[in-house]
Design a protein around this nucleic acid. Structure first.
Length: 482
DNA sequence: AAAAAAC
């Protein structure tokens, strides 16, 4: 109702943000609300639940943080020990760190406490931090579950719950943890769920957790930003290193993420790049949290131009100004391609995505092309070259990466020979992606959820817990199916 | 088979 009198208000003020919070929002460079913010902020201020379909970079964090902040700011600093007023759940540690940073910036000048709860770093300091109670808790599911089970954290007072990148939490097998966590929060909570895609499991989860949600959708799934110029380069695995180094010699590649399929592969690419005289940082799940953060910081502040990463960075990592994404390998999940290249071309800036494709990856390439509903133009084809030829002939050599299209015009829909060859080769393959049938990850141990119903068995649950509801596991009748 | 995430 206040807005009726404020028709002249614009920007975030018109969405219901005011006072110090509005000031900090502006100071942080948020002046023009993004579509998702325009839709989600007023609804949440009214108390509505949100079902958001949006990628990172769409402005999600401010979309859920601002309305919660605007309410928490009025609540004063009296908090129950070991509780959190708002809980933000994220799939990866990096994303959690990022979210906390954004919230801190937005909350600047207000007396808002935040805490980060994630694995890989000292548990004790986190326990100490939440001991007096906090306003915002940003967490990954593993450590959060740990703290709740050990009663270092109590969620019953949590009246705001945000699930970020819910589809990814599903992929990572967190869905049951998420359910359990949600169940432990205040029953009258306000909930927002964000997901880049909406598979059935997520729709079902949303149905269980959200009450009459406002549906907010910003970019149709499966589409890639038009500002990203995509292309492929055919090169055999052995040639890729050299091809990559040649590419990186182009100084138009100011800020580059190179994606590898495996952790080992990421390390190898990094080593090769360094051997070729490039400075590169690497990030993957086998690195310590410290090393991961350092790599990311160096890349973000521009001191390192090249970041080599596994799919840990495919989603969620929000580094502005990334000029190029190079897929050294195609991802196993075709969907991942969309997320990877989405690291560039943000905020209306141009981006370039180049994918190196070995003939053995042709099947994956076709999957990707199906998902993005376009055929990727071929920027270069090194497959004709005999294997170990260090100096590739280069008629007009280094063509700008931006000139992604001319090669294609030569081929038009003439299907590059090599693609066909590969396609044939892969045709005989069995039903790919055959999922493990029964699929239910079988709920893990429950924490103290049963606390109200004292377990007759006494202490914990060693092997003795017979009534394991989900424990059937009727050994496969036909084990030969393998 | 890979990646992420709790010790």
């Amino acid at each position: 109702m206040t807005n009726d009198n404020n028709a002249e208000l614009t920007g975030f003020a018109a969405l219901g943000i005011s006072g110090q919070l509005l000031k900090a929002t502006h100071a942080a460079g948020f002046t023009q609300p993004k579509p998702i913010q325009e839709q989600a902020i007023p609804a949440q201020i009214e108390g509505r639940d949100i079902l958001g379909i949006a990628q990172t970079g769409s402005g999600k964090t401010a979309a859920f943080a601002l309305p919660i902040l605007s309410k928490i700011i009025g609540l004063g600093t009296r908090r129950r020990p070991k509780t959190a007023r708002a809980l933000i759940l994220a799939p990866t540690r990096e994303l959690a760190v990022q979210i906390e940073e954004t919230i801190k910036v937005l909350a600047k000048g207000a007396h808002i406490s935040t805490a980060l709860v994630l694995g890989g770093v000292s548990r004790h300091s986190q326990v100490k931090r939440i001991a007096p109670g906090v306003d915002f808790l940003i967490a990954t599911p593993g450590r959060l579950t740990d703290l709740v089970r050990e009663k270092d954290l109590v969620l019953s007072e949590t009246t705001w719950l945000v699930l970020d990148e819910a589809d990814r939490m599903l992929d990572m097998g967190f869905i049951n943890d998420v359910r359990r966590i949600a169940k432990a929060t205040h029953p009258a909570r306000q909930t927002a769920l964000f997901s880049a895609t909406m598979p059935d499991e997520i729709a079902e989860l949303a149905k269980g957790l959200l009450r009459d949600p406002v549906r907010v959708e910003v970019a149709p799934q499966g589409t890639t930003a038009t500002e990203i110029k995509q292309s492929v380069v055919f090169a055999r695995t052995k040639q890729k290193r050299q091809v990559l180094s040649k590419m990186l010699a182009d100084e138009a590649m100011r800020s580059v993420i190179v994606f590898a399929r495996t952790k080992h592969g990421a390390d190898r690419v990094t080593r090769d790049l360094e051997r070729d005289g490039f400075e590169a940082a690497v990030i993957h799940g086998n690195k310590s949290q410290n090393a991961r953060q350092k790599a990311l910081n160096g890349f973000r502040d521009g001191s390192v131009r090249i970041l080599v990463a596994t799919d840990i960075a495919a989603r969620g990592i929000d580094v502005p100004g990334i000029s190029h994404v190079v897929n050294f390998d195609l991802p196993d999940e075709a969907e991942s391609y969309v997320h990877r290249i989405g690291r560039t071309g943000r905020n209306g800036q141009d981006g370039v995505a180049v994918t190196l494709v070995d003939p053995s990856e042709n099947a994956k390439l076709r999957q990707v092309e199906r998902i993005i509903r376009m055929k990727l133009p071929v920027l270069a084809d090194h497959l004709d070259q005999p294997d170990p030829q260090p100096k590739p002939r280069q008629p007009n050599g280094e063509r700008r990466l931006e000139a992604a299209n001319d090669h294609e015009s030569g081929r038009q829909q003439g299907k590059p020979r090599n693609v066909n060859a590969g396609a044939r080769k892969h045709q005989g393959n069995g039903p790919k992606g055959a999922k493990p049938a029964g699929g239910r990850p079988s709920g893990r141990q429950e924490w103290s959820e049963q606390a109200s119903a004292p377990r007759p068995g006494g202490q914990n649950k060693p092997e003795g817990a017979k009534p394991r509801k989900f424990r059937r596991r009727p050994r496969k009748p036909a084990a030969r199916a393998a």
